[in-house]
């Protein structure tokens, strides 16, 4: 690993100032992606600005009908939060299915969302719930935040402080997890609220997380698994890699969306449910 400077920020303004002042500085959240990237030489910042010392970035609350999760809240804290599991259990299950227990003890919501890995779970949760990403500068809707493969609307020296999740009538997340990493080979998050159905797909798209418009329209008319269209995303827009072909991912989108609708409808699952395993409802 190449040497770098390390700054522990005590507040958001202090972090932002350090990021603005030091050329090629990067924020360090939980480090579950960034530290491996440093070790592999995939990233070589001049400095890391550690957000881990900012207590105000951690915690969960329920305000004005929305679940507000601090950016530095770990996956384990979200998965174990009574507020999350009462108000939005689908989000708690999503967090509990990321990586493994040790990754969940360090990895954070803000880090995952800012990284926007095309196979990460949280981007699907944000997009599928119509969340609002709150930064030190502004608020950005999830629809505008995720701009492509590992890219977001964040400006340099802009830091996510929290994410606000509207609470829908019902929601579910189902993923087909890679056996080694637990990243989503494909993951589908579906939510139904009074005025909209949202379907967000992660792991499948060549440009990262996306909404499946045809599925949303079908479910808005008739919220049943039978109404979901098959192969509704162009194969050219889907990933092919050593884990799965575009054709297989296309098939999985439909299968997982059906299971997510069934889970929303409260049907007993026909499939094994494991914490952190292949299926997270």
């Amino acid at each position: 690993m190449k040497p770098f400077q390390y700054r522990l920020a005590k507040s958001v303004p202090e972090a932002v100032a350090a990021l603005a002042q030091i050329a090629e500085a990067r924020p360090l959240a939980g480090g579950m992606t960034l530290i491996p990237a440093l070790k592999h030489g995939l990233a070589a910042p001049a400095a890391l600005v550690d957000l881990g010392g900012i207590a105000s970035l951690r915690g969960v609350s329920f305000e004005n009908g929305e679940l507000v999760v601090g950016a530095m809240t770990t996956h384990a804290a979200v998965a174990g939060s009574p507020i999350v599991n009462e108000r939005l259990p689908a989000l708690g299950r999503l967090a509990g299915g990321i990586g493994d227990p040790q990754v969940r003890h360090r990895g954070t919501l803000g880090g995952s969302v800012a990284n926007n890995d095309p196979a990460a779970d949280y981007p699907a949760g944000c997009l599928g719930l119509g969340a609002t990403i709150v930064t030190n500068l502004r608020t950005v809707s999830a629809d505008e935040f995720f701009t492509g493969f590992f890219s977001t609307a964040l400006a340099p020296a802009e830091v996510i402080t929290s994410i606000r999740f509207p609470v829908p009538m019902r929601a579910a997340y189902v993923k087909f997890a890679n056996q080694a990493s637990r990243y989503a080979t494909v993951g589908v998050f579906i939510s139904q609220s009074a005025n909209a159905v949202r379907v967000a797909v992660t792991g499948a798209g060549r440009s990262g997380v996306f909404r499946a418009g045809e599925m949303e329209q079908a479910l808005a008319k008739d919220f049943r698994p039978e109404t979901l269209p098959a192969h509704c995303v162009a194969l050219d827009d889907l990933n092919t890699d050593l884990h799965a072909s575009a054709e297989y991912r296309s098939h999985l989108i439909n299968v997982l969306a059906r299971r997510a609708v069934e889970a929303c409808m409260g049907a007993p699952s026909r499939h094994p449910v494991r914490h952190g395993g292949a299926y997270a409802f």
Partner: peptide
């Protein structure tokens, strides 16, 4: 908490 010490500074 259990953590992976190869992925922490």
């Amino acid at each position: 908490n259990s953590v992976k010490s190869c992925t922490m500074l």
